[in-house]
Amino acid sequence: MKPPPFKYHDPRTVAETVELLARNENAKILAGGQSLMPMLNMRYVQPDHVIDINRVEGLSYIREAGGRLEIGAMTRQREIEYADLVARRAPIVREAILNVGHRQTRNRGTLGGSLSHLDPAAELPLVSAALEATVHVQGPKGKRDIAMAEFPAGYMSPSIELDEMVIGVTLPVWPDGHGYGFVEFSRRHGDFAIVAAAVLLDVEAGGKIKRASVTVGGVGPSPVRCRDAEKALTGEKGAEAAFRAAAETCRTIDAMEDVYAPAWYRQHLATVMTRRAMVAAFGRAANAR
């Protein structure tokens, strides 16, 4: 289990990286390496060029601008986990990240890497979808923005060109005191989820749900926004029955299956995980009490 031979590049700038991508066929970007390296070791991928972006300047940051959070593609998951700003402005991201792998993998793993790899059960694409993030990519023709809803082109394939790379993400921030819940079902701690759910609730004074975001991962080929559940929640007051009914709408999501988890099980878990995430989110909302 050793990587196949390849030509190694370690550019210092995004422009250089994009140029390398454009010039070389069958190239792979090496970010945190927590997904690419196992695939290389098992020779599931055999790139001719590996472009290591760990030395590229300016891709690691967490900042607030214009009421939004901006996070660089090479920001390590650990930095996001420990960032006060994230905990205050987008606490669901921190909640999700505690479920991402283990301390050792979060030290290396990056936000951009996780989004580009786009595992259907990965936590970071899921919260990005829940928050309606914007993904910033750069290619030879310059930069462009992709709404997270449009980012997945299919199973584990982002809608970016071969010569483009993810450079950062902008996350809209929910109002102070919003409720958030991230619940996942995995066989063991730190494993990829079988099904995970992210719920955000904006609850107005008096306890009525003004706005809801319900997203599940691990069921479809990429995170699925559950619009029916969101509609069902809006205007509700957080009764168990309302959550149950709203969550139940997730049972009809078109589900993947494999030998470990059949489609019906994923659909069923989608209803349970979303309901639990709703309960958690509502419980955290400042106005719920």
Binding site: R187, H189, G190
Partner: peptide, 9 residues
């Protein structure tokens, strides 16, 4: 990742 050994957790 497929054949699961129990971990401490």
């Amino acid at each position: 990742a497929e054949y699961l050994l129990p971990t401490a957790a």
